[in-house]
Design a protein around this nucleic acid. Structure first.
Lengths: 187, 187
DNA sequence: TCGTAAATGTGATATAGCTCACTTTATAAT
DNA sequence: ATTATAAAGTGAGCTATATCACATTTACGA
């Protein structure tokens, strides 16, 4: 299954077999069932995850115990509570399976070693980080400039498959509207 | 003035004099007056900027010609229309001086050369990118979980100096509320 | 295949925040 | 100093979206 990782990396930089071998040493595969937690609020965050197959939701729970979907992670996505991961503090979010999911796990130490040992991989992660930032900035702009309906249609256009895979209430949460409002928007 | 850059970088990784010398080759200094544009919507984006002194606003203008402040950049901040910068496309945003401002400019080519020529600098930018992403993610979460008043108070707490330096209407725009609403919030 | 829980739809009402219009107060340029 | 311009405050009414309550439909584990 690590071939998926290779394909993913090589969209950005080609690797020799030896280089990929080296990369692989830093990852371990793991499978989770629907409803299982990869990260639970309050726990230390040992891993960042690369999703091979399945679907995850990253959730922030506020003071009133209301859950907010910060992001979905599907095949080919990297996900974690990155703040907790990078600063080695307790998770402020949870990461949960919406489907049976297979991931590659890697620790912060592995991440640092990999970056230190491979300029290519460091530049790969730099590119990922830059585009991750741009994605978030886009989402902020979308918040500032569009109403719920436009944001909904945008999401539908960008990730049509999502709507087959997750309940509307989670889509609503991701968009930052109540499920009732989303329901009225679509009917 | 490049000493400011050195201090900034060395918050993350120490540099030898030679290394810093090498870094410097990639930056050129430039001064702008209040109201001048560093980037205008539609233009190619040649540079990313490191702010030595002064204050900038990054603005997205929507279809209805309404301006939205995406971010402010003060001393020690990096700013650009990064999407356009990285993809070498036309600016979708504008970057304008709110005060007389001194910046260090650097092109995408310089960025790539610097990263390729210095593992330290590449890891510096990786760290910046990661924390930039985390900052945006935080802002999204703050949007999802807080009302205008809470977001306002949060910003006030985090960047009290901003309120002395920019008109309330721009703060309102950054927070995503109308200036009237912000005014009522604070009175 | 039945029964329970989850997901979805929908009405009624409340409210945060928007828009428009106008006034007042600062700020900056001549 | 004077004037023009920008910023800020405020009232009135409007609108999008939230919340609460309940009905209906769908999915799935025993």
């Amino acid at each position: 299954m690590k071939e998926k990782l290779r394909t993913h990396i090589e969209k950005i930089t080609a690797l020799t077999d030896d280089e990929f071998e080296f990369v692989c040493k830093h990852f371990s595969s793991k499978k989770f069932k629907k409803h299982q937690f990869l990260i639970q609020k309050g726990d230390p965050v040992k891993h960042s995850f690369f999703v091979i197959s399945g679907l995850l939701k990253l959730v922030y729970t506020d003071n009133e115990s209301k859950e907010h979907v910060v992001s979905f992670a599907m095949e080919d996505w990297w996900e974690s509570d990155y703040y907790a991961y990078f600063t080695q503090t307790e998770a402020t979010m949870s990461l949960e399976c919406l489907e049976d999911t297979e991931v590659l796990c890697f620790t912060l130490e592995d991440y640092k070693n990999l970056c230190a040992g491979s300029q290519k991989m460091q530049s790969f992660f730099l590119e990922k980080a830059n585009f991750g930032f741009l994605g978030s900035q886009r989402r902020i702009i979308s918040w500032m400039t569009s109403n719920s309906k436009a944001r909904y249609e945008n999401l539908l256009k960008q990730y049509p498959s999502l709507f087959q895979r997750v309940p509307k209430s989670l889509i609503a949460s991701y968009l930052g509207v109540s499920r009732e409002t989303l329901s009225r928007l679509t009917s």
